[in-house]
Structure formats: structure tokens, C-alpha cells
Computed example of a mutant assay.
Amino acid sequence: MTALDAQPAIITLHEPPVIERNVSGASPFLLTCDHYGRLIPDALRDLGLPESERQRHIAWDIGIAGVAERVSKALDAHLIAQRYSRLVIDCNRPPDVASSIPSVSEATVIPGNEAISQAEADARRRAIFEPYHRRIKEAIDGRLAQDRPTVLISLHSFTPVYAGIARPWHIGTLYHRSTVLPHLLLSLLRDEGDLVVGDNKPYAVSDLTDYTIPVHGEARGLMNTGIEIRQDLIADEAEQTQWADRLTRMLREIETALITPQSSYA
């Protein structure tokens, strides 16, 4: 047991878990951002972590919020993002896997996650995970009911060094069963000439390690891809703007090439 063992079975949030932009946006792209924020509910007492750890990549996807906001505005695309730290509950993990509420992230022990009860885990899921994914489902339901083209883009960032191993990629596309959009995006990224591009790097999507793409993309038959940008390349506003501009240009090209009234969007 830890000093944080008496966690509440009902969690009160000081900010709603879901943040949205351009809810009525005209773009066929639906943007999601599972690790947009790093808030921690007051009742969890910072999970026993100092601020230095809560600022690190273990707590959120550094830099991706600024990129996501800019791409959403430029494309007039609906963005659905999640404000709370992935250390509270990871909204891109199935809730029944150990990494959903990690007791260790990279080499950092998370005291507030050690030996939590099922009731405590369920409280986090109800407060944060379920509202976020319910909102994504509702948005897709509404778009499909209106026969609107819908392409899911899941935006993430990754640390340049993990567990002592350097990652050379500047950006990667992530996918599993749906390959049309990721492969087209890979080709456009490689054509840029100045990028080291990852094909399912630094991660590959799977049903065991991911949630957003398998559940909201693949299970719904939507064209989809994950995008991972290295965090040291989007550390400030100028870099976030540069990458958002680059992605916006490519996504517009993809829209012209693939997203037509005759397309199945799958």
C-alpha cells in the first residue's frame, strides 16, 4: 500500500475531460488527441509525483496540443481532445490492460497508481475515459447519419529518447488494418526530402495496445491513421506552427486525392 491508498470511488473533476474545437467544421477529417493535457484531479494529490515528473512525456504528449489546435483551425476540422494526464488513465489503452493506469511509466514509479482498487480504477474510467470516447462515438454517429465523409486522424507525439534508446524518426504514421491513408501519407512525407519518416514507428497500432483507432476507426469502417511527431521538434509555438502547416498542406492534398463522393472512406 502507498500513502495514496485512500482514493475516492467517485472523482470530482475541476475541468471537464473533453475539449472540442470546430464542432461544426466542414472538413471530412475528425481529429482526436488522446494525450492533449496533463491535468490531475485534485483528489489524486498529483499521484504523489513532483512537478518535474508531471511535465515529462510520461504525463502527456508534449507539443501535440498546439499542433492539433492549429490543424483543426486551418482545415476547419472537428477536434476532440482529452485534458487529463495519461497517468490518471490512458485514453488510448483498453481499460482492462495494465498500461491503462500504469504503476511504472518508463522508469518512474507512480505512487498514486500502486495497488489501487478496482473501484478506484472504475472511478477514473467513468470520470475521464468514458466521456471522452462517448463524445468521439457521438460525433461519428452524427456525421454518418448525415452521410458526411469521415476520416479519423489520431494525433500524438513521442519522446526522442525512450529507456535510453534514441529514436531517429521525425514523424511516423501508425496503423493496423486500414492502410490506404497511412501509406499515402507516408509517401507525401518522404517526398518532403528533409524528414526521417517512420512506417508504424515508433509504435504500431494493435487491439491490445491501442483504443482510439481500433474502436473508432477500424470497427466503424473509417479511413484512419495515427500520426506521431517527435516532441523536440514541436517544443515551442513556432515549431508547432511549422508542423501544423506541413500537415495541413498534406491533408488537403489527401482530401483532393481520396475523399470524393464516390469514395467509401474505408
Rank of each mutant, 00 (worst) to 15 (best):
L251V: 09
L188G: 15
D34C: 01
Q242V: 06
R45A: 12
P160H: 06
D191Y: 00
D245E: 15
T248H: 05
D199E: 10
R167V: 12
R190D: 05
V71M: 14
G193K: 08
D5S: 14
A65Q: 08
E138I: 03
E106F: 05
G66K: 06
I254M: 15
I213P: 05
G172V: 08
L188T: 06
Y36H: 14
I10Y: 03
L174M: 11
E239C: 09
Y175Q: 01
D42C: 04
H78Q: 08
D90F: 14
Q146I: 03
G164W: 08
A68R: 06
A98P: 14
T150C: 13
S72W: 04
E255T: 06
A6I: 12
A68T: 02
A59I: 11
K201P: 00
I140L: 08
P131T: 04
R246S: 07
G66V: 07
I259C: 12
L174H: 07
A123I: 11
R249E: 12
K201T: 05
L31R: 02
V109E: 15
F29N: 02
I136K: 15
V88N: 11
G112P: 10
R246D: 09
A107L: 11
A9Q: 07
G48E: 01
I136V: 15
R252Q: 13
P202G: 03
E120R: 00
S263R: 09
L233R: 14
V205R: 09
P261D: 06
R93Y: 02
T108A: 10
Q242T: 13
